[in-house]
């Protein structure tokens, strides 16, 4: 798993599984730079999302990586950092 890049589409899928949707802006468009808060995901939803990412990609995210990531772009970058893919373009 750990050689695969983590994309915003992966994040969308996991967000939906972890915390559903419906409380904010739709996930369908370009959401990379929209704050999680605006998207309708609170800290609890992001903790659940972070936990699922860690399990699926067999990584251990730095605790501050989740709490400090305000946008999908920041979280995707943090995950790829951990996957050793720091240079990859998160938009893919």
């Amino acid at each position: 798993m750990s050689t695969t890049e983590f994309t915003v589409e992966d994040l969308k899928r996991i967000l939906r599984e972890a915390a559903g949707s419906g409380d904010g802006v739709s996930l369908d468009g370009d959401i990379l730079d929209i704050d999680f808060e605006v998207l309708g995901y609170d800290s609890l939803a992001l903790l659940e999302t972070g936990g699922r990412i860690e399990r699926e990609y067999e990584i251990s995210l730095d605790e501050s990586a989740i709490s400090e990531a305000e946008t999908p772009r920041a979280l995707v970058e943090a995950v790829n950092n951990d996957l050793g893919l720091a240079q990859a373009d998160p938009v893919s």
Binding site: E17, A18, A19, G20, S21, G22, D23, G40, L44, A45
Partner: peptide, 8 residues
């Protein structure tokens, strides 16, 4: 209910 509520 929204899926946001259903999931929790």
């Amino acid at each position: 209910l929204t899926s946001r509520i259903i999931s929790q």
